[in-house]
Computed example of a mutant assay.
Amino acid sequence: MNKTLCFALAALLGLAACSAERVSLFPSYKLKVVQGNELDPRAVVSLQPGMSRDQVQLLLGTPLLRDAFHADRWDYTFNTGRNGVIKEQRNLTLYFQNNQLVKAEGDAIAKAIEMLKAAQAQQPQVQPAQPGAAYVPIQK
């Protein structure tokens, strides 16, 4: 009986050490899991009230969730994770009335604006060229 108790205790302690956090510390390949719709920041920023459902679907793609109980609501969700830990998550919820876009909300809008501003800041500004002058980008 002592051997059985010791074996059960050792097995219990061994299994307790195998948590997801500790396993993620081992240097091994972890598969990147992408779920949902990755939204183009330019498309998210170009949403305007009054757009039809077809226009929105052409712009953003098929929504991840069309709730049967809320027919005038579309949800776009995007998650990126490794080893069960979510690294990035974005949500966009669109509300329609009479097949026209009324309201858009979610953290994907702020993230899209932030990404576009960062991309615009990285692009060098071009100074208008004088006739006969060489092209020289202006560095900030």
Rank of each mutant, 00 (worst) to 15 (best):
L59E: 03
L59N: 06
L59T: 07
L60T: 08
L60Q: 06
L60D: 03
G61R: 02
G61A: 06
T62N: 00
T62V: 09
T62E: 07
P63F: 03
P63K: 04
P63A: 05
L64I: 05
L64E: 08
L64Q: 12
L64P: 00
L65H: 12
L65R: 15
R66F: 00
F69M: 11
F69P: 00
F69T: 13
H70M: 08
H70N: 11
A71L: 10
A71I: 11
D72Q: 10
D72Y: 02
R73C: 03
R73A: 01
W74E: 01
W74P: 03
W74Y: 10
D75Q: 14
Y76V: 06
Y76L: 05
Y76G: 02
T77I: 14
T77C: 02
T77N: 09
T77K: 10
T77Y: 07
F78D: 02
F78M: 07
F78C: 06
N79F: 14
T80L: 14
G81W: 06
R82N: 08
R82W: 08
N83F: 15
N83S: 14
N83R: 09
N83G: 13
G84P: 09
G84S: 06
G84M: 09
G84I: 13
V85R: 15
V85S: 14
V85G: 07
I86F: 07
I86W: 04
I86Y: 02
K87F: 12
K87M: 12
K87Y: 12
K87H: 14
E88M: 10
E88H: 15
E88Q: 15
Q89A: 12
R90N: 02
R90H: 11
R90E: 09
N91W: 10
L92C: 05
L92S: 08
L92G: 05
T93Y: 01
L94G: 05
L94Q: 04
L94I: 07
Y95H: 06
Y95T: 08
F96V: 08
F96Y: 08
F96I: 10
F96G: 01
Q97H: 14
Q97V: 15
N98L: 13
N98E: 15
N98A: 15
N98M: 12
N99L: 10
N99K: 11
Q100D: 09
Q100W: 02
L101G: 10
L101E: 09
L101N: 09
L101F: 11
V102D: 04
V102F: 06
K103Y: 13
A104D: 01
A104H: 07
A104N: 08
E105A: 07
E105N: 08
E105C: 00
G106Q: 01
G106N: 02
G106P: 02
D107H: 05
A108M: 05
A108I: 08
I109R: 01
I109L: 05
I109Y: 01
I109M: 05
A110F: 04
A110D: 10
A110T: 13
K111S: 11
K111L: 11
K111V: 13
K111E: 10
A112Q: 04
I113V: 07
I113R: 14
E114G: 09
M115V: 13
L116P: 00
L116H: 02
L116I: 05
K117P: 00
K117T: 07
K117F: 01
A118W: 00
A118N: 09
A119W: 00
